[in-house]
Design a protein around this nucleic acid. Sequence first.
DNA 1: TCGCTACTATGACCACTGTCATAGCGGCAC
DNA 2: GTGCCGCTATGACAGTGGTCATAGTAGCGA
Lengths: 201, 201
Amino acid sequence: MAVSERGPRERMVFSAAQLIRRDGVTATGMRDVAAHAGAPRGSLQHYFPGGKEQLVNEAVAWAGRYAAGRVARFLAALSEPTPSGLFAEMVRQWTDEYRASGFEGGCPVAAATVDCAQSTDSTRGAAADAFARWTRPVAEALTDMGVPADRAESLATLMISALEGALLIARTERDERALTTVARELGPLLDASAQRPSQGG
Amino acid sequence: MAVSERGPRERMVFSAAQLIRRDGVTATGMRDVAAHAGAPRGSLQHYFPGGKEQLVNEAVAWAGRYAAGRVARFLAALSEPTPSGLFAEMVRQWTDEYRASGFEGGCPVAAATVDCAQSTDSTRGAAADAFARWTRPVAEALTDMGVPADRAESLATLMISALEGALLIARTERDERALTTVARELGPLLDASAQRPSQGG
DNA sequence: TCGCTACTATGACCACTGTCATAGCGGCAC
DNA sequence: GTGCCGCTATGACAGTGGTCATAGTAGCGA
């Protein structure tokens, strides 16, 4: 991922997301973002006249779109899609990263929430949008797999919640145990909900 | 809660936890902590010669003890303890707070993880300890309710993960929906695991 | 050449941070 | 009294943050 052959603007948004998910919003400086993106510092005020707030919000939005895109790709890759299979893939993306590159980063949306939900309302809204954009394809996928429509959204929220929480624990422990645990424990519940709902399962 | 008739040291640790869970670690200044605790600024360097790092770590540890204590109190209050009942109480603590005081704060341990897991290893360790101290009484309670020992810890991790993730979403949405959703969806799974494992009962 | 626009380049400003140095106070021991 | 100790009180310092002001460059149309 992270092809550097985009415009400098997009590179800065991407770099912001990377640094935010590693260090948090407040600890990430604008100068750091420019340096990480290999972009000139002067471009910051040109592309983001709204300042850091705008940059952070765009990074959060980017993360939401990215997560949604991943869901679509997971579904395309699964020959026989099941709810537990989808969730396992969502988790595996993180265990893969942690195994390959260490437990450096978490979810940028979570970082923005913890860091700005109280102080910067626009960022809180951006994070809410990101979660919504991420939840939607998950819920739709569950529906396609036979989950009743009214439960699909709830289960999607549960999946994302469990994933986000497990990410926190995994980072503190520097161990993917929490991630694999939630995947294993939640799998049967998810698959059971995909039975055709003629009678309650 | 938050009786102010403790020593100034304890008050500062408590205030640090409050501010951290609202604004994040980096955005919380030492001067803010002293002011919030009604403690003299000069006491900071007296009680916390290790500086901000020490203060943050103690705040995180305090949060872990606090969460563990709450679990014990929930169990004592439940006349007929069930896994879903315990989880519902854990969630209800947050919905109560959010309904009473707004969606200002999250979990201090989560904030410290997002903000310091990469930069400050001692704080990462403190967060890991806090999660462990919180998980233990939950797992023990599940065991007492009939959950097999090998699953109890996994389910406790799942409960805390789902709670932490739902907290993030609830804060972004300024809506307790995510919290009530995970409680509702996870309840049956938890209770089903408490059947004596030989046969369902 | 001129003018206009998109973008880059720097230096400065001010607010603020964590930390330290130093000094002051109150009380207790003796 | 003197000495010591726990604690408080400030002021300063060096570093860093986001932001702004200003100037410079490259390209293009006319």
